[in-house]
């Protein structure tokens, strides 16, 4: 069928265009970071690493990167604990209100962060936590926990409850069942969820804008402040490094998931 063939080529061509559009910003930012000019012309007239040197020379960048880690890692840990607990209760407890509970857990991820930001600001102020690391960690956990919840729910859904029941008939109490059966089965989901939670915190701007202070300023916030002042390729250099790091995280998550799938998991267990 000739018409079908042409339609097919058009479809595939269109998809290729769209995917090109999706990847385009990366192809602009990375070359720009190696520009030898101090204005944002593209493609750069010449190459240099001066913007990386400029970035390294400004102590604010490494400080912000350290802050982002100091906030991202505890956020990931707290999210994994809380998200896993919630997922276990929702997927394995026979609760009548499980759907309502998961709606509440997932909501923070989908509601505009600005609402939570202006709500959390006075709460943190009252608790005396404002501008400390803890306040941002807590706020980021609220929006990152849903990702752990979703990935762990998916892990729990990938095998039947029968496996845990089998462990119980074998004489394993609730804790032993979790330790020997449930945990090994959902470990990958927890790890992937943790990586996603870290990535969320690492990229979060709005809550950081309201809750961080000069001592706890994160990378996105610093980029944001710089963007509003002057557009130099320094930001492109920072962006390239962040992009490389994100790819690393993505690769880690993908590898984890691939390993999880390679595990001999019974389809209908």
């Amino acid at each position: 069928m000739a018409g079908g063939g042409i339609l097919r080529i058009m479809l595939v061509g269109f998809a290729a265009l769209v995917l090109g559009y999706l990847i385009l910003p990366t192809f602009i930012v990375v070359p720009l970071s190696f520009s030898n000019q101090n204005y944002l012309s593209f493609p750069p007239p010449g190459w240099s690493t001066r913007w990386y040197e400029a970035m390294a020379g400004d102590l604010a960048w490494p400080q912000a990167a350290v802050n982002s880690f100091l906030i991202g890692v505890p956020t990931a840990l707290l999210s994994v604990v809380l998200g896993t607990l919630a997922a276990l209760a929702v997927k394995r407890g026979r609760l009548g209100w499980a759907a309502a509970a998961s709606a509440v857990v997932v909501a923070p991820m989908l509601l505009p962060h600005v609402i939570m930001a202006i709500g959390l600001y006075p709460v943190m102020l009252d608790l005396g936590m404002l501008r400390g690391f803890l306040s941002v960690v807590v706020a980021h956990t609220v929006v990152a926990m849903p990702l752990v919840f979703i990935t762990v729910c998916a892990s729990l859904g990938s095998y039947g409850e029968a496996l845990e029941l089998a462990a119980m008939t074998c004489g394993a109490g609730p804790w032993a069942t979790f330790r020997h059966v449930t945990f090994p089965m959902i470990r990958t989901g927890m790890l992937v969820g943790g990586v996603l939670a870290f990535a969320t915190s690492f990229d979060e701007l709005m809550l950081s804008l309201f809750l961080t202070g000069p001592g706890t300023r994160t990378l996105p916030r610093l980029i944001w402040e710089q963007l509003n002042m002057f557009l130099t390729p320094t930001i492109a250099a920072v962006a390239t490094l962040i992009f490389a790091f994100s790819l690393l995280l993505l690769g880690a998550a993908a590898a984890l998931q691939a390993r999880g799938r390679a595990q001999p998991v019974l389809r209908h267990g």
Binding site: A162, G171, G173, H268
Partner: peptide, 20 residues
């Protein structure tokens, strides 16, 4: 009595062997 103290053996339809 909870199942883990009943000392009853059980075989499930889909085997339910621990894959790990």
């Amino acid at each position: 009595v909870p199942p883990y103290r009943r000392n009853i053996g059980m075989v499930f339809q889909n085997y339910s062997l621990f894959p790990h």
